[in-house]
Amino acid sequence: MRVKNFATPLLVVIGIAITFALSYYGLVNAYYLQIAQYVGIYTIMVLGINLVNGYLGIFSLGHAGIMAVGAYTSGLLSKYVLTDPALFPLCILLGATAALISGFVISIPSFKVRGDYLAIITLGFTLILKSLLQNMEFVGGARGLRNIPGNTNIMWVFIWLVIAIAAVRLFINSKYGRSTMAIREDEIAAELVSVNIKKTKIVVFGFSAFLIGVSGGLLSHLLSYTNPNTFGYAMIAEGLIMVYLGGMASISGSFLGAALWTLLVEILRPLGVWRWIVGAVLLIIIMIFRPSGLLGGRELNIGAFLRQITRRDSAKAALEVANGGK
């Protein structure tokens, strides 16, 4: 047991060391590194979406708008105010805090409005924000924000990813996590056993928005620019696809969904337009055979998987002994 408690922090430290080496010494092809960073950033985003859409069970389309808040706030800060690269984590943190506030705002309609009606309110939030950004000249208007310092590297993506995964795990296993899932299963029943519905919704929306804001900030500092169109229909659709591909209400599913979709899009790149056709067909097939995503509601647990296999073997052996003994 002691070894196990020790193993996770050790792995994290080793991971940080490896990613530090990767980002400062150029050991790996930059293209692969770029894809790895995309996977990490999208995993953080999908974790955030999963908190609301998966664990809380509310169909929200607000993630593109929230991501825009994170990307623009942190981008503006690191371009004009906190220009020192050492202050990069602070920029991301402040961008995510701005996103957190927008998450609080989105959570207010969810007290009263339900289902598809709430989905369209969150969609409205995204589209209003996109329109505002297109019309505000000081953030670059429709041309977008250019020359953001490209501070994102694989080490920072890794660190934020570890923080995000740890935070979501802690949250899900806490009192709030249990309240969240109780609301998903049955809101009225949850209220009857004195779950504070409003407070829980505010906290979950805020936390989700914070993570999505972090991913937005990292993305804008990876690409060195950001524009309103990045956070439009395509981002809404891709975010949903990654969540439901990997599996609802699952941390490992979030990673799997982000990694599979990003890799799929990259591997199929030589096919040109056909990659979207192949990707869409694959998605339809996966949805037909696994309607709640690849890891819906479960976690990928190698230890438990091995135990299950050995148990099956021992059960089989016991059965053979019993048959042989007859």
């Binding site: 169909f59 696809i241 439901y244 591909l245 056909w274 869409a280 339809i284 949805m287």
Partner: peptide, 21 residues
């Protein structure tokens, strides 16, 4: 009989498919 969201995702995929075809 599947969860409604998987239908929604499938319809998004169908839209994507038609558009890119």
């Amino acid at each position: 009989g599947a969860p409604k969201v998987s239908l929604v995702v499938t319809s998004l995929a169908v839209g994507l498919l038609l558009q890119h075809l």
